[in-house]
Amino acid sequence: MQPLLKPFAMLGQGGVPFAAGIGRWGQLTADTVRAVRHVDVWLRLLLPQMARVGVDSVPIALFIALFTGIVLALQASYTFTGAIPLYFVGVLVGKTMMLELGPVLTGLALSGRVGANIAAEIGTMRVTEQIDALETLAYPPVAYLVVPRALAGIIMFPVVTALAIGMGIVAGWITAIQLLDMSSADFFNGLTLFFLPFDVTYAMIKATSFGFIVTSIGCFFGFHTKGGAEGVGDATTRAVVASSMAILVLNAFWAIVLL
């Protein structure tokens, strides 16, 4: 091959499987939408999945938000000193937690916890023929495995994100009144100064989309697992990497479209 053509060949070698993967994920998403009609199959699985995806993820999301809120308040104070009134700490903590860090950090943390868990579980079911067994027992596997997980992600990611945003703001407030020369009134004055109800809508739209993307990508890599333990490990890693990247891309997409 001519040296000049090599970069194009390399691009093609990487790009074609990537595009094929996107196509197969799109197919699984379409199958998932179609499988929602099998309510009798997925309904009783929804609550347990909501507990696994949402309730079990609350501690890690709150832990991350706690320290993020503390750091945000301190860094805002450090940046604003002498130039901007200190009550703007409340503006920055509130806006940043709601618009950006609350949804994105929660999404990234849950892509590791939830996405990896889903990919490993479904991947193990694939390589041990449990998914084939489901089919022979007349269960549509997408309705049984993907629909309850995707719905749990869509429902619970916004809930966990809202709790994380709340925790981040509370942490920022306590930091402001304990470590900075600020009163609660100053902090909450800043917090409400530029607050728009749309901020909440924006955060929830992002969290909902992250919930779907993390769970559906976890399911996708689980479904396409090949081989044995190595294949499951590989699927799990790919699920976490792909869903983290998808969160960042979606985050930029919503900023372009909605702001």
Partner: peptide, 19 residues
Amino acid sequence: FELRRKVGYVFQFAALFDS
């Protein structure tokens, strides 16, 4: 799915649902 209701399948390694 209707056809599968009439068929039982015994897998080589049982394929039991481990959860």
